[in-house]
Computed example of a mutant assay.
Amino acid sequence: MKLLTFVDQGEQKLGVKTDHGIIDISASVKNGINFDIKTDMMDVISGFKEEVARLQDFIDYSISENKAVFVDEEEITWGPSVTRPHKIICIGLNYRKHADETNAPYPEVPILFNKFDNTLTGHKDEIPVPKVTKKLDYEVELGIVIGKKAKYINVDSALDHVFGYCTVNDLSARDLQLRTPQWLLGKSCDKFSPVGPYLVTADEVGNPNDLSLKTYVNGELRQNSNTSDMIFNCAEIVSYISQHMTLEPGDIILTGTPEGVVMGYPEGEQHYLKPGDVVTVEIEKLGSLTNYFTRE
């Protein structure tokens, strides 16, 4: 199932993309259908597989009875596909070729840092380039969304706790990131984590460790890799984090970026993002996420 959020009169609403179009779930519920389902993205995530099954039954019925309310995909204002995560946890230097391009040794354990919810934004949104950076970089990343509380879980059962996956652009102000040994400042400016357009349930994605990833800047292909190049795979990441903190439904884990970032280019060929640029990051089975960069 492909879930999404869109903004209607200031309210973030749940949508589901189907073969017939995008269904406005709350509007469809109000259209005389007597189903006990959740209409908020975070509630669906917390309900995990059982809630997805109820939602699917509702969608099938509402379409068959001509009671589904659809919205125009070209006209909606997209929200982040995960709206209120308790934690945003990121993994640094997790692709072999990305470590190679930045002349960094492969980490022996996952490198963890965090972002905050001020960084969240959606597909097609405008992102102001902060005045405090001259080196804004893109990073296509596979996002793991937790659906079931996880603590001290082993690798073999780790993916059983995953609700689904999404495309994320882990925007990074390199001059701020590398100013100190702590990366947080360069990762946490406003709207530095576009997420979407969809949150795709784990059953529809299958193996998350074999998905192609790409980044385009103004139509030019900059990143082109596969999650199989990750040093620590998705199950290993979820298990490792769970040994140190409890993962809650709705938590997002950003799993690292492949080679092709601006920072990895030779000096003199580094063309960082600027106002007027258009960046699209895409991941196989998860969709393409586009954002427009403007002046702050």
Rank of each mutant, 00 (worst) to 15 (best):
T133L: 00
I144K: 04
K131W: 05
V129H: 04
T167I: 03
V162Y: 06
R174V: 10
N154V: 00
D156W: 07
K131P: 05
G164R: 11
P130S: 03
S172M: 01
L120Q: 12
G164D: 11
K134L: 05
Y138H: 14
T167Y: 01
Y138D: 09
I146K: 13
F163H: 04
G147Q: 12
D156S: 14
N154T: 10
V155D: 14
L142T: 05
A158Y: 02
I146M: 09
K149E: 14
L120V: 06
Q177D: 07
I153R: 14
G122E: 00
T180K: 13
E139H: 01
L142A: 08
V155Q: 15
G147T: 06
P128I: 03
L136C: 12
L142H: 08
Y138V: 09
T167V: 03
I153H: 15
L159C: 11
I127C: 15
E141P: 06
H123K: 08
L159W: 10
D160G: 11
L178R: 15
K134W: 05
K131Q: 08
V145Y: 13
K151Y: 03
D117M: 06
D170L: 03
D125R: 07
T180H: 08
D125E: 11
V129R: 01
I127Y: 11
K148I: 06
H161G: 03
P128K: 10
Y152V: 03
A173R: 12
N169Q: 01
N154A: 07
N169W: 00
S157C: 11
K151F: 00
H123D: 13
A173N: 10
D175E: 05
H161S: 07
D170N: 15
A158M: 06
L159I: 08
L176P: 01
H123P: 13
T119Q: 01
H123Y: 15
A173Y: 13
G147A: 03
K151Q: 02
D117A: 11
V129G: 02
D125I: 04
T180N: 08
K148Y: 09
H161V: 02
K148W: 11
K124V: 03
E141T: 01
N154I: 03
L142Q: 07
G122V: 01
K151R: 06
I127S: 15
F163D: 00
D137V: 06
L171A: 14
D160R: 14
I146A: 11
V162W: 08
I146Y: 12
K148M: 10
Y138F: 15
K134I: 09
H161E: 05
K151H: 03
S172F: 00
A150N: 07
Q177F: 04
G143C: 00
L120G: 14
K135E: 15
V168C: 02
R174T: 06
V140K: 09
K124A: 07
K148S: 13
V140A: 14
Y152L: 08
A150V: 01
V145F: 13
T180A: 05
T119D: 02
K148N: 12
E141Y: 02
P181W: 06
L171H: 10
V155F: 12
K151W: 00
E139P: 00
K135S: 10
